[in-house]
């Protein structure tokens, strides 16, 4: 597909996603029933969990594209890896700001070493490292390779981090935390959550495609500048 086509598709998906976001807000404010134990604050769940899902999907996409990029050296794969990493960074930031807002009401403290929150914090730093590496090489090709290595090693490390934060948690018994998720989630909450996951995924891919198109245009610009200078 041409860059312009990707861009149009991205814009369309983004607009659908934004409309969906308004729908999600409406569902979680006016439709879904209030959770008995946690009250209103539990509604943060419907943006917090989908954002977390999206950010972990993003590192998966980024690592996959990075791996194949190192193998095939197709510029498009590197662009996709970069676009996914940027999206993952934004959505991980959403997780990290909404989590403490919920935690303050549910647990009484802004920060706890809740395993998934900890994992997201480290994921955020892995993305940060990805951008710092990319931005601090004089040769862009080198930066692409380095960043691909960072994304790949980060994705390989995430299962280990997950196991370790769960284990650390079991070492330190915490006051009983009311768990919002679980198989016993009532139907309307589950529906709202699934809508949330769908909306965030659509939004992510919409913006992902726009970001991807941007990188394509940049490459085109670079090519043209090199041609005019030579």
């Amino acid at each position: 597909m041409s860059t312009a086509g990707v861009r149009r598709g991205g814009t369309a998906l983004t607009l659908i996603g934004l409309a969906g976001l308004i729908g999600l807000f409406w569902l979680s404010f006016f439709w879904v029933s209030t959770e008995v134990n946690q009250g209103v604050a539990q509604r943060i769940f419907y943006v917090h969990v989908p954002a977390a899902w999206t950010s972990f999907m993003a590192i998966g996409i980024s690592a996959l594209c990075s791996g194949v990029y190192l193998w095939l050296r197709d510029e498009r794969l590197d662009r996709a890896a970069l676009a996914a990493a940027e999206g993952g960074f934004v959505f991980a930031t959403i997780v990290l700001v909404t989590g403490p807002l919920w935690g303050k009401i549910a647990w009484g403290t802004y920060w706890t070493w809740e395993p998934r929150l900890t994992l997201t914090l480290l994921l955020w730093f892995i993305f940060l490292g990805y951008f710092m590496v990319r931005g601090s090489t004089e040769d862009p090709e080198k930066g692409k390779r380095f960043a691909a290595v960072v994304a790949l090693v980060g994705a390989i490390d995430i299962p280990f981090i997950h196991v370790s934060v769960l284990w650390f948690r079991s070492l330190h018994p915490q006051p009983v935390v009311a768990k919002a998720e679980g198989p016993t989630l009532p139907q309307d909450m589950l529906t709202t959550l699934l809508v949330g996951v769908l909306v965030f995924t659509v939004l992510f891919f919409g913006l992902f495609l726009m970001r991807y198109a941007l990188e394509g245009l940049r490459a085109e610009l670079q090519l043209r500048e090199r041609r005019t200078s030579s």
Partner: peptide, 24 residues
């Protein structure tokens, strides 16, 4: 807190969207 959380979601997504739009 719910208000702040939902506003931050909107702001962060919008900031990313606008930054892509500006760069495009």
């Amino acid at each position: 807190h719910v208000f702040a959380a939902y506003t931050l979601v909107i702001l962060l997504v919008a900031a990313w969207a606008f930054s892509i739009g500006r760069r495009l």
